[in-house]
Design a protein around this nucleic acid. Sequence first.
DNA 1: AATAAAACATGACCTATGTCACCTTCTTAT
DNA 2: ATAAGAAGGTGACATAGGTCATGTTTTATT
Lengths: 238, 238
Amino acid sequence: MKHSRESNACQNCPSRGEGIFCDLENMELQDISEHKVTNLYKKGQTLFVQGNHPFGLYCISSGNIKVTKTGPDGKESIVRIVTGGDVLGHRSLFTNEYYTATATALEDSRVCFIDKKYILKVIQDKPSVALNVINKLSRDMGAAESKLTSLHQKNVRERLAELLLLLKESHGIDLGGGRFKLDIKLTREEMATMIGTANETLIRFISEFKDEQMIEQDGKTIIISDEEKLIEWANLNY
Amino acid sequence: MKHSRESNACQNCPSRGEGIFCDLENMELQDISEHKVTNLYKKGQTLFVQGNHPFGLYCISSGNIKVTKTGPDGKESIVRIVTGGDVLGHRSLFTNEYYTATATALEDSRVCFIDKKYILKVIQDKPSVALNVINKLSRDMGAAESKLTSLHQKNVRERLAELLLLLKESHGIDLGGGRFKLDIKLTREEMATMIGTANETLIRFISEFKDEQMIEQDGKTIIISDEEKLIEWANLNY
DNA sequence: AATAAAACATGACCTATGTCACCTTCTTAT
DNA sequence: ATAAGAAGGTGACATAGGTCATGTTTTATT
């Protein structure tokens, strides 16, 4: 029992270094640990659903979570993907709105939940936490605006190249020899919604990229084999 | 001289109630006033340019500013528009990046500039300011993700209807009889880049909306005359 | 292991919207 | 006041990529 509590403690979180609490002392982390609940989500389970009322902050310990928005016609778009060290649900929490998106585990994930009142208190008492939240939001915002521009200005081929490069940055595992495995489980359908295209179209370009030897496939996971060419094709914003 | 300083003081800012300093006392505001510079920008002047290094925070006192991103082919997209009470340049400031966008005055505007070191100190000392920054970022982020989904899931007609409704919320002046004047100067070209389309296409739909009596034009400014119909056509996300 | 269901893949066709060309109407500057 | 340059507007045409139909492969379930 004692053991289980300790293993859930923030001090031992595998993503401790990346999260918004990274600048806190062990003592301070202990206090947070005592105000949180840790949950394990199986692949496909939802943490919260668009329209729900937020009661607190989700803090990802491990696993990948997709954040999707459902449009009026029931179509889904992935707006971002969060990983260990990221927080989730902060947007709606701090603006006092209902959730405007749905969060679903892409794989088995470990997620902590911190009550609203408590996290607001922490943010007010610990400037480093506030600054880290601001920093994370700023980065997310930058990524979102960047995606917006891509969607305006680039064609599907360029957006796919860009997506693969982004996934390499966030989830790439170096296999040596300039090859990188994308360590994230996404269906073609999901990848398609990430760049705002139909899955048939996405599949066509994936095939093209394979023909061009820019990527390979190991089962369902993608391996990037020619990053240079991908960068060229992505037509990146200098 | 004394007068000019006083009229620039944050205590007298027309947007005092909307900004991130809205919860501060007069005394605290005075301190901020003494650490800022106020500038007047003429229509078309830029506050900062994509690629520049940020040195502080811009705080809009009055006027509308467009934030644009230039793609690799030199094409411009408006990613958001900021108004009195909004802050600008916070994203790059807090992530320590170069500016990833350009800010240009859409009309003569009054903008204050606060030095980086000082504003960081304020954020650490005054939790209310930190929370307001988080709140603004969260709202901007929500708007950005919403635009992303629209761009994925909606056609140009729907996006235009949505844009007009958003502009009504942010810049609408009630003319009575269910008519609202959009108090913001945007060219067709600019409106087109806001919804990610070509200006010819945008103009066609504007014409259609006029034919359908949903909007009118008073010179260059648009008047919304049938909000209900616009809402229907926008196919909003419930 | 067998079966069902989901995901992947490819072809044929269609349409929304981008592009180009051209004209008209406002702004702005001299 | 007038000229020059933006901005607004419209038609003709081309095409990227969406949709639908169909088949194959992979994954999950009993």
